[in-house]
Design a protein around this nucleic acid. Sequence first.
RNA 1: GGGCUUUUAGCUCAGUUGGCUAGAGCGCAGCAUUCACAUUGCUGAGGUCACAGGUUCAAGCCCUGUAAAGCCCACCA
Length: 868
Amino acid sequence: MKFSSSYEPDQFEADIYAAWEAAGVFKPSVPTVPVDNDSDGIDDRFENNFRHYSIVMPPPNANGNLHIGHGLTVALEDSLTRYYRLKGASTWYVPGADHAGFETWVVYERELEKSGHTRFEYSRDELYTRVWDFVEMQRGNMELQLRALGASCSWGDLTFTLDENVVDRVYTTFEKMWNDGLIYRGEKLVNFCPKHQTAFADIEVEHKDEKGTLWDIAYDDVIVSTTRPETLFGDAAVAVNPEDSRYKDLIGKTVHLPLTDREIPVIADEHADPEYGTGAVKITPAHDFDDFEVGNRHDLPRLQVISEDGHMINVPEKYEGMTTEECRKQVLKDLKEQDLLKGEKKIVHSVAHCYKCGTVLEPMLKEQWFIDVEKLAKVAIEHLENNEIKFYPENKQKVLINYLGNLKDWNISRQIPWGIAIPMFRKVTKEATDEPDWIFDRRVNLQSIEKSGVTYVRDEDTFDTWFSSSHWPIVCTDWSEENPTPYYPLNVMETGADILFAWVARMIMMGLYVTGEVPFREVYLHGLVLDEHGQKMSKSKGNVINPMELVAKYGSDAFRLGILRGRSAGMNQAFSENSVVSGRNLCNKLWNISRLVQSIVDEDEDVSGEYQTNNQGEDWICREINNCLKEVEKDMKTYRFSEAVETLYSTIWDEYADWFLESQKIFRNVPLLKITLEHLLIALHPFAPFVTEAIWQNLSWTDGFIITKEWPSKLVYDPITAEQFENIRTIVSEVRTTLQALGGSNNSKKYGLLFDNDSIVEDNLLLIKSYTKVPEINYLNGAPRGLRLALANHELYLDVPENVVNDYRDTLTEKILSVGRELDALNLRMSNPNYVEKAPEYLVKETRDQIKEKEALIDRLKTQLELI
RNA sequence: GGGCUUUUAGCUCAGUUGGCUAGAGCGCAGCAUUCACAUUGCUGAGGUCACAGGUUCAAGCCCUGUAAAGCCCACCA
């Protein structure tokens, strides 16, 4: 006997994981590149879908630790992987690590600052090397944590987002897009973080409502309203609404720009809202997104008055070099002195912030690389509307289509050194007028290149990480034009619902652009893991749960079972340690179940051979296990993880342990015990990989690894006999309930049972005795006495003395009343002719049968009451 | 301003094409104790399914509206 009395996860987990890895069981069993594919008459596509199962991990930050969301991701993805592996598919779960461009850069820059240095002391290339080393030092942590969570991923295929093949693929796509005219260099307003000195894509910007002030400033006869007086030096016009009668006469004239000697035109534009402020608005094309558009419509000059580091430039000397904040104060003061400040109002408006440091973002005129997304989005929408990708939850499909329909061009330039260098070189030889201003070249290790006597220097920017990660399904599966792997498209993309737009949308666009196919067949989006009160976890609130601590405390399986509990696609749901405790309990229960089965097997060592069923309980458990397997299969197909776990939980605990195993203490059926336990272990394995493998390795008769076994086939049993077991369960339950209802303590020790002619009871005396724990069951000699079990309707009596029976009168009366109420409801339904006519026949028949049953039950209960 | 989601037991959630007496885990109350497991077993209490209408023989589920909570998108100077 190798089983200790409780399951101790830390005694097994590390060894088991190491053994799996050593045995190579995580690798796909069918090669990932196509082998010579002889025609065997089977449709390749069908065969591919049938035999391969591929899933890639959303790459965790190589530099960080896993958080609770990663814990959920791994629990979901690994359960799928293990399930399909058991189902016989060649599964390929590709792990990844993210260089996390901006995130990591922020961390690194903080380290630099701590050591008293700044980014300006180093060249871009030096910084890149330094960050690389910094990340390299940390990288192992994340991988160890994935192992502790039990991720059965193919480690040899781990993809880092800066791997050579990733960079190659990204450059190939970029070159193709450049040649296709989908990439352009544009001077546009971009959201710029003055602290981090980089631009962002629209999607990375965090808008927050903030209190601000709306000032009214007199520009001659026109009073404009603005929240940013300091930008007035960049004004190119004043706009009024063409329908606004107040200003009609002014359109086309000029007004004097305060604090300067400039005159600017008054223009008519829809942008000006007559209802807002004074109805006249100053137009600053270089520092406001709306104004930029207005400027384009009216061909206005873009005057930049704020530098990238947030200081005033190109302004009257007095203001030159001030920060925007200082300048605002000074401008307001000067305006007031000249009596040009006509009013102020407190307002709440939405302000763009850096999602990392919270700094207010400055709209900044910059030359950047943009992707013209219109065509890409259009193709993506077509495929989505064609239902080529199935979404869980379903509604995200529409949400995504809607998003893609309104997408603006995508800024892919970032001014940070940590990332994939943009492979573009700018012409610096001025005389070469015939040559293009920019050329594509992969030699980004060079700062400058020569081409037919012309010198070009490399753009120092790097790619937005979403640009490279939009290739994730392609690069992880090593797809290529020459060798399109059967593992692409992925069977499923599992990731967070919060990055539907940032990542999923872009993977779809890029997958279609590069391969012509959608990158995955299904998408499962998980929601946020909230704390137990439904609050978002955050460091500042101090409610962050570290998954690795829970793994250490309760075991990896317990964590996985716990985090899957009560969770459904796309929903932000609460999580508490309780659910992990319940998972831990299940593991221990299964361990002890196995311990008991093993002990029976040990005692009856010589029994072997095929299983067969010999009594009601045995047929019944076969039926229940079959149902459970069917349910789990259905749940896995529809990504209902929580339900799958719940089904297994109750089958293992409430049915196998509480009913079947108890019966097996009397009837021992070793072959059946073995096969049923194996079935349950295999079925639970996707969710609780370690404890099931630990048990598998400890059982005397099993061999190999459970991880590579076959998903159980259905058990053979007799359905009629199985159903008879329900009788026994009803009898036992009624005995228990009645004993409890009698009040007092130790009832099950005090009273025995009496039975009369009743084959079910007679055949199962020992079993009933064992379940109910009554001291004895005797044949009833003479007239019935005690309490007859009226619900179960069997010739079985609780042998209790008359005074105790009397105490039971109230319970009985109450029972008669409640059954009577149910009967009334049924009769009412039948008295409705529409019901009898329109409801399906089987329902009407069912109602009739139930009425009969209830009537009979009331009769029995009444008879009994009279007897008392 | 547009869109999405949620509202079911004390808490966290199921309830898949409408079908009768709405489920689970945790928590709570009572009973049990040399039994594989106290990380246990047995029993029980607890719900006008947010609200108001409507469709239907039948509504937690479908439709309309209201309220509350949360999220996303958008240029409000």
